[in-house]
């Protein structure tokens, strides 16, 4: 599979995850978000950018439980809930936010 952004084609896997992490930029993220039917707000970008930073530091996409806890530390306790993340990404932060962030599917993701 592939996604086309600004006239260029980027390879994705059969579930729509970007194959090459380094391809990612904000335009690609926005295009994946459109396919996921997510209207990207600042709150969405905050989570997506957080995931990029987490991956950069640890070389994995975090499990949801770990993401929730880490977001609480970084962005404030009111955002440290499954409910908050699922409101932003109804099909699951792992599935959708990681996909938009251009990360591989998290290990052990349900």
């Amino acid at each position: 599979m592939a996604i086309e952004v600004n006239g260029k084609t980027y390879e994705t896997d059969e579930e729509g995850y970007l194959v090459n992490l380094a391809d990612w930029d904000k335009d690609i993220a926005a295009a994946i978000a459109v396919e996921e039917k997510i209207d990207m707000t600042d709150n969405h970008w905050e989570v997506v950018n957080f995931l990029r930073e987490y991956y950069d530091e640890y070389q994995i996409a975090p499990a949801v439980r770990v993401l929730t806890k880490a977001i609480g530390k970084k962005l404030g306790a009111e955002k440290a809930s499954n409910q908050y993340l699922y409101e932003l990404f109804p099909y699951g932060p792992a599935k959708q936010a990681c996909k938009i962030a251009g990360l591989p599917k998290p290990t052990g993701c349900v």
């Binding site: 530091e57 640890y58 070389q59 994995i60 975090p62 499990a63 770990v66 806890k69």
Partner: peptide, 14 residues
């Protein structure tokens, strides 16, 4: 190859 050594530092968060 993928350098997975930074992931050991993520274990605390798990």
């Amino acid at each position: 190859m993928k350098n997975f050594s930074p992931t050991y530092r993520a274990l605390e968060g798990y």
